[in-house]
Simulated assay, not measured.
Amino acid sequence: MNDEGRNVDTAITRGCLHPAAGDVMRYFEEERVYSLQIESTLACPQGCRYCYAPPDAGQVRELPAADIAAVLTSAAAMGVRVVDWLGGDPLARGDWHDLALQARDLGLVNNIWSSGIPLADPSIAEQAVAVTEGGFISVHLDTLDPAIYARLHDGDAREKIRAICRGIENLQAFGKPASELVNCITFTRPLAGSDLARTMRYFCEELGMTVCLTQMCTVGGACSRPEWVPTVAEIRDACRARDAICCPGSPRSFGTMDVDKFYCGTAICVTVDGDITPCSVIREGFKNIRDRTLCEIVTDHRDELLFSGMRRKGPSSSACARCEQNSVCWGCRAMAYYETGDPLGPDPKCWRAAGGR
């Protein structure tokens, strides 16, 4: 395979996030759920001021363990392959390890999306590595600059940055390879330009980790921070810098969210309140797990949950479905939902959809 071919494979694998990218793509073609996101708690030590979690997230809520157990059982019966543990920070929950063991015992692979701060505790990092065999662990560090970090987050910026970096060191010390570690960066205007590029280069080039560049959606805490919403031009420049740093030479590129359509089109979420949604950022769901089983909800709402309308090309289809990058990308469905009210519409924060190639 030539160098370009390897880069394409790398781009698709990076966009799937899951190590088994081929399985994700197969599930996408079969319109099946590969990944179940579970928003287990709203508790989080990081204090992101733009968090998409509900505005009352300070009133810490958890999805009851009994509900999680029922969802895990149903997911395994459906052939779901992985659980993406979300929050808040799922590691802030006291029984997180027991829940992850339940998932593993059912044959599900665990992925953990953490702030990274709890992983500074070596015992937590060791448990996280053991329970995510075959999966990934994501931390969340937007910037290495304490002054910028302090604008975006509550608390002691320097100590939180140090804690996240210690957490990464702990994970690697307990055997988690860099290829199974992700740093999730939420792109806001304070990061635009050299700071974002510097952060991505550090994690991608120096540490060998995957970078997941996400965009700030105007939902939850972000609604009170409109000045932090990047312009389309700033998003274009950020994504081009990401492509050059993380996947040089590849003709494939994702738009405003750094996952490809294969990840997006095979994942669903159960929120902390038990609602089933197509995405953790889209807060409006289809039925609740306390009223119907996960399998029943997915059966009745598969088209909406897996964005089936985005898979059909035609005169009336979304511009994202006809884009030159549609082989891997269909824009951010959450961005389309919040900006236009149509989750199947064009992504208004994508420079391609806006006409700026």
Rank of each mutant, 00 (worst) to 15 (best):
N2Y: 11
D3R: 13
V8R: 07
T13N: 14
T13H: 14
P19E: 05
A20S: 12
E29A: 10
S35A: 14
S40D: 04
T41Y: 10
T41W: 12
C44T: 09
C48N: 05
R49F: 08
R49M: 13
Q59K: 14
E62C: 10
E62Y: 10
P64W: 13
A66S: 13
D67W: 12
D89M: 06
D95T: 08
D98I: 02
R104F: 01
N110M: 08
W113I: 12
S114I: 04
I117C: 03
I124W: 00
V131P: 01
G134E: 11
L144A: 14
L144Q: 14
D154V: 08
G155Y: 12
R162Y: 02
R162P: 00
C165M: 14
C165F: 02
C165D: 05
I168S: 00
I168M: 05
A173Y: 15
A173D: 15
P177V: 07
L181I: 15
C184H: 15
F187I: 01
R189N: 03
G193P: 01
S194I: 05
L196N: 14
A197R: 15
A197T: 12
T199H: 15
R201Q: 15
L207Y: 11
G208L: 13
T210K: 11
L213E: 02
T214R: 10
M216Q: 11
A222E: 06
V229W: 11
T231I: 06
D237S: 15
A238K: 02
R242W: 14
C247K: 05
P248H: 11
S250R: 03
P251F: 04
R252D: 01
S253W: 13
F254N: 00
G255S: 11
V259I: 07
F262M: 09
V272G: 02
S280A: 06
R283Q: 15
N288T: 05
T293W: 06
L294E: 03
I297T: 07
F307T: 00
G314H: 06
S316H: 09
R322Y: 05
R322Q: 12
C323P: 03
N326D: 08
W330A: 00
W330V: 00
G331C: 02
A334Q: 07
Y337S: 02
P346G: 04
D347R: 03
W351A: 12
A354Q: 08
G356D: 11
R357E: 11
R357F: 06
